[in-house]
Design a protein around this nucleic acid. Structure first.
Lengths: 214, 214
DNA sequence: ACGCCCTGACTGACCAGTCAATCTAGTCCG
DNA sequence: CGGACTAGATTGACTGGTCAGTCAGGGCGT
């Protein structure tokens, strides 16, 4: 694309991306103008279009960059010989740390992409799905090994696991949950402990979940 | 508001709301035009503004109507003398049934409101929060009764529970999960079983969740 | 005749994307 | 060294299209 010729020279492309994160997080993708991004980055309007073909492409770039890092981590963890609980803990930890490191970016990714069923979520659905599938695979393997009980669809369990984490981030994003070092750590632990605890194959409650009126 | 004078006379206001659900679900709130709603409803453009002050108000109405029904159910369940597991099962069941009954409406509510941190989510945050708080209260009570272990923040557990359900709906919305009668039933069971299983105070694994570098 | 429901053409504002012009730095030659 | 040339970086005024919301008027029941 374009390496800045000399150190110290500001990489305008990067500056635009970072400004976009702040603007998208503050105003939302649909509500902000391209000029807001340019202003925030301190560059001319047209420069945004020098580096990105469209407003959409800016968000695409932000999402894909980050998501690929996550996929890489998941694959790496998946390749190792570890108990599921630790694999899932590594994933939960990565996501929470991502938020702690750059809350705005994670907010944008979750709000504007991961959960945007009509726009970017749909466009990137295959990329998003990859993560779900990998997690589902881990759970399936744990079931095969007898570590998890076999009576839940791995795909469903994977969604529940990922959904629980994402909702914690949502709680932070909406400022419904406290955001202290301590709570970040406890959140990681909670999700893994709860989901794994629920999936593990300890003395099965014979209570056939007969329940449920409509 | 306006009761249609005679039976058989179509309630145009209702028709507009229902059309809006279909249009919002199909195209998304930001991408659709008010004329799309009017066309879908088979009414004139201006009539939308006769019944609703703005495009926003249409979505507000859809969300509030449904969310209040849910809050009512949660409160009713909460008032009864039931084991947590059954209370949570009733909530999970209600949400899944809501989706089964009107997938488009639930899609709109989740995608455009519940998770829209910059627009409607923010506007309705207090209403949304009420649900989380009620669920959190149930969990806190279960902890006080010794049914759930006491070492997780009720608020965090409530978010994890709700997030797991919403992510299952998201899976259906994105068509990542199968949508058959059977799967709907299993989904309800899975969420409750997993989360409750994880939160219950059975023989605590002494494995102090020491883990996780980051 | 009054008060509604209902209509749809119109307006005013807004904004993504274009483009012609200017700037900057590197390179090559005399 | 200086001037000519090139290519990419940078600028911001402008265009074309879109769309939320308005409004003046028409229809119909009572």
């Amino acid at each position: 694309m374009s390496a800045s010729p000399r150190a110290g020279a500001p990489d305008k492309r990067r500056m635009i991306l970072q400004a976009a994160v702040r603007v998208f997080a503050r105003q939302g993708f649909h509500t902000c103008r391209v000029s807001d991004i340019a202003d925030e980055a301190g560059v001319a309007y047209g420069l945004v279009y020098h580096y990105f073909a469209s407003k959409d492409k800016v968000l695409d770039t932000l999402f894909l960059e980050r998501w690929h890092v996550m996929l890489e981590l998941i694959r790496e963890v998946d390749g190792q010989e570890l108990p599921v609980r630790e694999k899932l803990a590594a994933i939960a930890s990565f996501i929470v740390e991502s938020y702690r490191h750059d809350p705005d970016l994670m907010k944008v990714i979750i709000v504007e992409v991961t959960r945007a069923a009509n726009s970017f979520g749909d466009k990137h659905i295959d990329t998003i799905r990859e993560a779900y599938d990998l997690i589902g695979g881990m759970i399936a393997k744990a079931q095969a090994d007898g570590v998890f009980k076999a009576d839940v669809e791995p795909r469903f369990a994977a969604m529940a696991f990922y959904g629980a984490i994402e909702q914690l981030l949502t709680g932070w994003i909406f400022e419904l949950l406290p955001q202290t070092e301590d709570y970040f750590e406890r959140a990681k632990w909670l999700v893994v402990e709860t989901i794994c605890g629920g999936l593990e194959a300890h003395a099965m409650t014979a209570a056939g979940a007969a329940g449920g009126g409509a």
